[in-house]
Design a protein around this nucleic acid. Structure first.
Length: 104
DNA sequence: TTTATGGCTGTCA
DNA sequence: ATGACAGCCATAA
């Protein structure tokens, strides 16, 4: 796939520091693709296994894990984040104001 | 080619 | 807080 869009998206996601998260809209914006949040989701879905992209650090705008195609995968994502020190509340959501990565 | 769908988001009721 | 609606556009059929 020769899509520059994906490459930009992956480049952004790959820069997310450990213990931090980014929502789809933010990734799209940082990739110079404002409004394409959905495509970011598709890019994640199309991500080849074994890639160096920390897809689990990408969450939705509510600071939670979106329902994904593969059942149970959202739990895996939450587990990976908790392993990096991200705490989830009783609703399975995290404090965006605190964990959202804000590049300068 | 056209249509339908989707790991979203922001706004309004 | 929750739910409905409407845009964005790449991928699949």
């Amino acid at each position: 796939m020769t899509s520059d869009t994906y490459q930009k998206i992956y480049a952004v996601v790959r820069r997310i520091p450990r213990g931090r998260v980014l929502n789809y809209g933010a990734v799209a914006a940082l990739a110079k693709l404002p409004g394409r949040a959905r495509q970011v989701g598709y890019a994640m879905h199309a991500l080849p296994a074994g890639s160096a992209v920390p897809w689990h650090r990408v969450v939705n705008a509510q600071g939670g894990i979106s329902r994904r195609a593969h059942p149970g995968a959202e739990l895996t994502q939450q587990m990976l984040l908790e392993r990096e020190g991200v705490r989830f509340d009783g609703r399975g959501r995290l404090d965006l104001a605190r964990y959202l990565w804000r590049p300068k």
